[in-house]
């Protein structure tokens, strides 16, 4: 499907967040057609039952995005999948390394602060930096993984790569997190913090991509 339709400026009635999820996951040229189909059906349902129409819309988004994700993985090819897995692993190790050698120092600093409002500020800054660092790492790893396909920055700023990376991280955290011993527990806990950070990073770069029309 090579053609794409730029939407006219007509106010959409369907849930904005659900639309955003669709736009983030579906290829751009397809997203417009699917959103149009959903909008058409949604408006017809909304007149009769507004609440159930919203539930219907979300359900459609959830069941419609999985075939696209599956298709993307199937069409990626073994080399690209291998590259993605390797990059995810390297990205994961980089995050862990960063966490152990730099952020852990930060954690010690936080631990030595006296109780009070200052501690809250220091903790907030520490976790904000940690969150930001992981999000950026996820986006850059995604860009590297899909480098040969479309170009580094386009991929780094697209939702596809980061979402795929998140899924891989989730898988890896489950595998690694099987044990409750020392370092493994630490890695699992850090991964649990890294996941929402990566997700946030992915969504932020999707917004940036849409705004900058990359």
């Amino acid at each position: 499907m090579a053609l794409s339709a730029e939407p006219e400026h007509v106010r959409s009635a369907s849930p904005a967040l659900a639309q955003f999820v669709l736009k983030a996951i579906l290829p751009h040229e397809m997203a417009q057609c699917v959103l149009g189909d959903f909008e058409e059906a949604y408006r017809a349902k909304e007149i009769r039952k507004p609440v159930s129409a919203r539930l219907w819309y979300w359900r459609q988004v959830l069941i419609s995005t999985s075939p696209f994700l599956q298709m993307r993985i199937q069409t990626a090819g073994p080399v690209r999948i291998g590259l993605l897995a390797l990059t995810a692993l390297l990205g994961y190790l980089a995050i862990i390394g960063w966490d152990i050698y730099i952020a852990r120092g930060g954690a010690r600093f936080v631990a030595t602060q006296p109780d009070g409002p200052e501690l809250l500020v220091v903790r907030s800054i520490y976790y904000a930096l940690y969150f930001l660092g992981v999000a950026v790492a996820g986006a850059l790893a995604a860009g590297l993984a899909f480098r040969k396909h479309r170009g580094f920055w386009t991929n780094a700023l697209s939702g596809t790569g980061p979402i795929a990376i998140i899924l891989l991280f989730l898988f890896m955290s489950r595998v690694i997190g099987g044990s409750t011993d020392g370092l493994l527990t630490y890695l699992t806990m850090r991964t649990a913090i890294a996941l929402p950070a990566l997700l946030s990073g992915a969504f932020l770069v999707v917004i940036a991509r849409r705004r900058l029309k990359l």
């Binding site: 400026h9 106010r11 417009q32 149009g36």
Partner: peptide, 26 residues
């Protein structure tokens, strides 16, 4: 999309309507 890649279907964009939030049908 898969069928289009196999050469079994073709597609074209239709009209954009207000009921579709200003988006075209394919």
């Amino acid at each position: 999309t898969r069928l289009e890649a196999k050469g079994c279907v073709t597609s074209k964009l239709g009209e954009a309507t207000a009921e579709r939030g200003g988006r075209a049908k394919r």
